[in-house]
Design a protein around this nucleic acid. Structure first.
Length: 250
DNA sequence: CAGCCGATAAGCT
DNA sequence: GCTTATCGGCTGA
């Protein structure tokens, strides 16, 4: 599989059987499995882990149902141990009841409520004691689209079109709503556990480059280049015209 | 399409 | 008391 050059990430695994290799959305492709990443994957600085998470699969299993999407947009938030502390990070004033998960071991979900009505999900990075994390900002849905639409209060579009896919999980709180994630049920879960309801899986989808831009919706450190997205992917949140540069995945 | 605005409550000072 | 890592609806161009 490869990253796409237009619109949506592309699954080529089945293309040879059905057409001449034209790009097609990966939700029509064959995502069916994958393996959790090792703990060591998460035990690096968030600005390294964040771009590496692009293309990985976030899976929520609930009552036999599988809701999943490919990660297409992330942001890094630096822990207070960093040389220049990150004023936009929840952890920047040290541990509190809310952000405790961030100071624990790497590879755990930090789910918090925001604006009284939404949730956002991060993955903790770095060894215990260091509170770097990666905010998951957008998915390209690959499984459980009908359930996601229901969770989001949207009408199911069949066959799925790009605008429908985009509305499902393009935004950090849309993502949580689509997958049914909440602080009470998912904060602190280990995303690399084989038995966890919430996992991040690697299915060998290859990503070579990321677009780098400033982070969204923050007031401090607005010029830090810590937002990473899949080049040209339609499910990335916000405006489609990026002014960011491309960088190789570290 | 870009920009503004209100909803709504946990979390922290 | 004040802020907030958002979203969706509305306005105006």
């Amino acid at each position: 599989m490869e990253e796409s050059t237009q619109g949506i990430a592309v699954a080529r695994r089945q293309d040879s059987a059905t057409n001449s290799g034209a790009p097609r959305p990966s939700h029509l492709g064959t995502w069916d499995s994958g393996t959790p990443l090792p703990r060591s994957f998460y035990e690096h600085a968030p600005e390294i882990v964040a771009p590496r998470l692009l293309g990985k699969i976030l899976v929520h299993r609930r009552n036999g149902a599988v809701l999943a999407g490919r990660i297409v947009e992330v942001e890094a938030y630096l822990g207070p141990h960093h040389a220049t502390p990150d004023p936009a990070a929840h952890s920047h004033r040290g541990p509190t009841p809310r952000n405790g998960v961030l100071f624990g071991p790497a590879g755990h979900a930090y789910v918090y409520s925001i604006y009284g009505q939404y949730f956002c999900m991060n993955v903790s990075c770095e060894p215990a004691g260091q509170a770097g994390c990666v905010l998951l900002r957008a998915l390209e849905p690959v499984a459980g689209l009908a359930a996601m639409a229901r969770n989001r209060g949207l009408a199911l579009a069949e066959p799925a079109n790009v605008e429908f896919l985009r509305r499902l999980a393009s935004g950090p709180s849309r993502l949580c709503q689509a997958l049914g994630l909440a602080r009470a049920t998912h904060n602190g879960l280990d995303v690399m556990s084989e038995t966890s309801a919430l996992q991040i899986l690697d299915d060998d989808f290859q990503v070579r480059e990321a677009v780098v831009t400033p982070r969204i919706g923050i007031k401090d450190a607005v010029d830090w280049l810590l937002r990473f997205s899949l080049p040209g992917n339609a499910c990335v949140s916000g405006r489609r015209n990026f002014t960011g540069n491309r960088m190789p995945i570290p």
